[in-house]
Design a protein around this nucleic acid. Structure first.
Length: 317
DNA sequence: AAAAACTTCAACCGCGGTTAA
DNA sequence: GTTAACCGCGGTTGAAGTTTT
């Protein structure tokens, strides 16, 4: 049998994307929506493999993604989710709708891993680093290797550890959740928003093809965009019809996954979309609620019940 | 000022899961 | 039921950028 190559190796361009290619891809997706990636190179004339097109879209061109400048809350969330889920970046990304799995993965590998290691080396076991470090850096692998029953018990323990740790983390910064509820995007003084070098190019591209007033969301999105132009230019959010379908139809898409997996369906979806337009990370609030829930009197059952709405249970087992 | 070392991140590769024929 | 193809994920690479010497 043997798996055939995903795309012809002959005549397929590799390497960094040019603004022209981005424009071609974006124009196509604007018209047809994301999906059917195999047809994209053919229909656009791009000399790119379908996979490459999908990757470019999901990791870079997709509206509503925030790049670089991870704030403290996001950082902690990633650490704890990594402790819970291991290196399942797509699952982790589903809790941070504005972030891509690739971005989170990179950030973990380049920043957080080192940070945790440093904390461990320094003996800085403040509970947070212990839980995240022990369960995080090596825990994911260990869990995967463990027999299922044992794995589940460990997961349960990890959940408790992570929840406790996140509670601690959140309690350190009482004002932060509010800051998150409001767009956390206006960068703190002194901090530098680090976007990809081509972000401006993309923003320009997107400005060009975003359909002003194509839906009621248009002005709202443009409003929020203009109000935070300096830092959120590349967050056109779901201001075009396709973007909503992009998120919803793109099962691998972070926001899509989060929305699609929500039993409440439209309610949560709209919640996400609405908050997305406002720049808030709704999934964080949901997660936060979930993490804090047992402190509000929910028991084990509640824990697992609560997990389900946030993500596919199969993601956990 | 230049070279070396280090860091970052976009993109590629290969595999597993899923689905359609 | 089997096969072929697509899609998405996670690991890895390497070019570009930044910092240090």
């Amino acid at each position: 049998m043997g798996r055939p190559p995903c795309c012809d190796k002959v005549g397929v361009k590799k390497g960094p994307w040019t603004p022209e290619e981005d424009l071609m891809l974006v124009s196509y997706i604007q018209e047809h929506g994301p999906g059917n990636w195999r047809a994209v190179p053919t229909n656009t004339g791009l000399m790119r493999c379908s996979k490459s097109c999908r990757l470019r879209w999901t990791n870079y061109l997709r509206p509503g993604i925030k790049r670089g400048n991870f704030n403290d809350q996001e950082e902690k969330l990633i650490v704890h989710l990594q402790a819970l889920l291991g290196n399942r970046w797509a699952a982790i990304a589903s809790y941070l709708p504005e972030r891509t799995d690739n971005d989170i993965k990179n950030y973990w590998n380049t920043h957080l891993k080192k940070k945790l290691k440093k904390m461990q080396d320094a003996g800085g076991n403040d509970g947070r680093s212990e839980g995240a470090g022990a369960a995080g850096v090596g825990g994911g692998v260990a869990k995967a290797a463990a027999p299922k029953g044992q794995w589940e018990r460990r997961l349960q323990t990890d959940i408790h550890t992570a929840r406790q740790a996140l509670r601690d983390a959140l309690s350190l910064e009482p004002s932060q959740p509010a800051a998150l509820a409001a767009p956390a995007l206006p960068t703190p003084p002194g901090s530098v928003t680090t976007y990809a070098s081509s972000a401006d190019n993309i923003a320009r591209l997107l400005e060009g093809w975003m359909r002003p007033g194509s839906s009621s969301k248009g002005p709202e999105a443009s409003g929020s965009t203009s109000s935070t132009t300096a830092t959120t230019r590349q967050q056109p959010q779901c201001s075009w019809d396709g973007a909503a379908s992009a998120s919803a139809s793109h099962s691998g898409g972070a926001a899509g996954a989060a929305a699609a997996q929500t039993p409440e369906g439209s309610t949560e979806t709209s919640k996400l979309a609405g908050a997305g337009a406002g720049g808030a990370p709704p999934a964080f609030s949901m997660l936060e609620n979930w993490l804090l829930d047992d402190g509000m009197g929910h028991g084990e059952a509640g824990l697992m019940d609560d997990v389900v709405p946030l993500g596919d249970p199969s993601e956990f087992f």
